[in-house]
Amino acid sequence: MAIDRDLELMLRVRQGDAESFDLLLNRHRGPLVSFFSRMVRDQALAEDLAQEVFLRVYQARHRYQPEARFTTWLYRIATNLALNALRDRKGIRAAVEGEAEASQAESKVERLPDSQPTAEQGMMLTEREKTIRQAVQSLPENQRAAVILHKYQDVGYRQIAKILGVSEGAVKSLLFRAHENLRIRLEPLLRGGQL
């Protein structure tokens, strides 16, 4: 079995080679930040989460076992972090919305400002990109993760199955349903129209 480059570097990191960690960082910094920015929409949070992945990789270097591809392990950590962040944010948003509703009912105070503008931080997107982003980010979490890993991170079906902890068939099914949803949401773009 041929050892992939990442795995080789990680084995060196395990032996205490700091330079190999830098090389891993150079190879995966960009893809990881992109992955998180697509998953969680907020650029600052995306960077925090990408840093957390590298921290965890570094902390776990002595325990690392080359059982699967390095990127499978890396994106498993990343996906778990992203899904947890989404759930946390959903909880916070629900709490804020509940508070706002209660507040409105009591004293008719003005509505809380929409959190939408903060999502634009650090992202220079065209209108088309915004439409695509909204379509992808409106997908259920697992479908979103599968689409982003498959389409943007170039991760194979088998790897996605390991990352999400489901079967390969389930990954194909997730992707198909996700694309059916996206086809409906992106219909204006698919018809070739300009936004």
Partner: peptide
């Protein structure tokens, strides 16, 4: 076509201070 449209969403670059913070 859907696949091509999805490909228009460009990746985001990490901020210059990413490594410093890490």
């Amino acid at each position: 076509r859907l696949d091509a449209v999805l490909g228009e969403w460009k990746p985001v670059e990490p901020s210059p201070w990413f490594d410093v913070r890490l």
